[in-house]
């Protein structure tokens, strides 16, 4: 592993900088704060709970909105809790879906207890075995740059594991009323049909 691990806020800011019509689902805890820090948007659906559900929620959304790129972005702990969902995504193979893991190798929110990725679980290999188009582990900002473009390429299901530095940056808290987040998301995506 290279000496300088990526900063999670830099990574997410870059992924969302030129988001165009990207729909975003963020996993509980840090991924949600990172997306809020990158700039609130009605097309962000922030999870504050439902641990293990980010990838599945993004899949249902991707199937419902096949012409829009959908990104599920989450922590390694959240993905591990719903690891079986990678098999579901592989079987459905939606071209517009991307799953990105911000892998700090710990359950950061709850006191930095190591996750299985700290002990060598290779999420990129798992995703490949589930037939997702997994890019090689991203370790520098050039890789993040390339990944940001891939989100819009429509050649998914895309998967990327990004090793990020440990540590919890200052929390940036978006709205947490789920019914509000639901309504504004549907309004932004569906317009009058919502």
């Amino acid at each position: 592993m290279s000496a300088a691990l990526l900063d999670r806020r830099d990574v997410v800011a870059r992924l969302l900088a030129d988001r165009r019509d990207l729909l975003v689902v963020s996993g509980l805890g840090s991924a949600t704060y990172d997306c809020a820090a990158a700039g609130d948007d009605p097309r962000n659906f922030y999870l504050w709970g439902a641990m293990g559900g980010t990838a599945a929620l993004a899949l249902g959304l991707a199937l419902a909105q096949p012409t829009k790129p959908v990104l599920g972005i989450t922590g390694d702990g959240d993905l591990l809790m719903g690891l079986g969902t990678l098999t579901t995504i592989g079987a459905q193979a939606p071209a517009n879906l991307s799953i990105i893991v911000l892998d700090n190798e710990v359950y950061g929110e709850t006191g930095e207890q190591p996750t299985a990725t700290a002990h060598g679980t290779d999420l990129t290999a798992v995703a490949r075995a589930c037939r997702l188009n997994a890019v090689d582990e991203v370790a520098d900002m050039a890789g993040v740059e390339a990944l940001a473009a891939r989100l819009h390429a429509g050649d998914g299901p895309l998967f990327a594991n990004i090793k990020i530095a440990p540590g919890n940056p200052e929390k940036v808290l978006p709205a947490r009323d789920g019914a509000y987040l639901r309504d504004r998301f549907r309004g932004a995506v569906l317009g009058d049909a919502a």
């Binding site: 559900g53 599945a56 249902g60 199937l63």
Partner: peptide
Amino acid sequence: MHAVVLSTEEEGVAHLAGAWLGGDRG
């Protein structure tokens, strides 16, 4: 219809939440 086999039922709750956010009934 998309008929989707799940690895566990809890996935289905999250999946259908996403479907609804995207305008699909499930």
